[in-house]
Write a protein that binds this DNA or RNA. Structure first.
Length: 216
DNA sequence: TAGGCCATCTGGTCCT
DNA sequence: AGGACCAGATGGCCTA
């Protein structure tokens, strides 16, 4: 594995993604910007308020430009549209890259074998969901045993999924050191997980006890 | 070759 | 107005 060599991966999911693109110098407004669902092309005659939907917008535009319309050539308009599209595409690509980075970070904190095939996106999300659920259950069981001063309960294999589905995708590394090292840091209380988890589920660590697919 | 996964483009909608 | 977000479309790559 070792996707995150040292320290927890920093997942920076910001509402406002950085924009490597300089602010546009667009100086003109096309009708389509404020018009109702209009396809790619500017409705012919739109700026002349022939179309009822664009009338208000056209008037506003004229007002903004001091009452003087600035007709643009078809060429200029299309060039402008292309430029905007290109910028939007760049932003979208960047956004998806950020999303994928976050997904990679998530993969990094999920326990997998080094030779495991990379989880797909949907697998990663499902795995994470079920993994969190399993950890929660384990913590709950550990709390129980602490309160009652008893031996830890039986290995919660049943809690972790269907027990007897050992398969090529065996998943004995659920509580492996690799999975614990620095990867569970987001929640401070989780730093004690290794100690809590270890005694609780020895039987589940047996190869074959847990199938990777149990968490998907 | 079919099917799954993915990246990218695109237009629409919502939000600031 | 411009950016973020979303979903649909499309094409490429890979594997069974």
């Amino acid at each position: 594995m070792a996707p995150h060599p040292s320290g927890a991966p920093a997942i920076q999911v910001t509402r406002q993604t950085e924009q490597p693109f300089p602010s546009a110098s667009d100086d003109e407004v096309t009708c389509s910007a404020s018009a109702p669902p209009s396809p790619t092309h500017l409705p012919p005659g739109c700026t002349e308020a022939q179309a009822s939907g664009c009338r208000g917008a056209a008037r506003k535009l004229r007002a903004r430009h001091g009452g003087r319309s600035r007709p643009k050539s078809e060429l200029a308009l299309s060039r402008q549209r292309r430029s905007r599209r290109k910028k939007a595409n760049d932003r979208e690509r960047n956004r998806m890259h950020n999303l994928n980075s976050a997904l990679d970070a998530l993969r990094g904190v999920l326990p997998t074998f080094p030779d495991d095939a990379k989880l797909t996106k949907i697998e990663t999300l499902r795995f994470a969901h079920n993994y969190i659920w399993a950890l929660t259950q384990t913590l709950r069981l550990a709390d129980h045993s602490l309160f009652e001063g008893l031996e830890p309960p039986a290995p919660p294999c049943a809690e972790l999924g269907s027990p007897d589905r050992g398969s090529p995708g065996d998943w004995g590394s659920l509580y492996s050191p690799v999975s614990q090292a620095g990867s569970l840091s987001p929640a401070a209380s989780l730093e004690e997980l290794p100690g809590l988890l270890a005694p609780v589920s020895p039987a589940c660590l047996r190869p074959g006890a847990l199938a990777f697919s149990d968490f998907l």
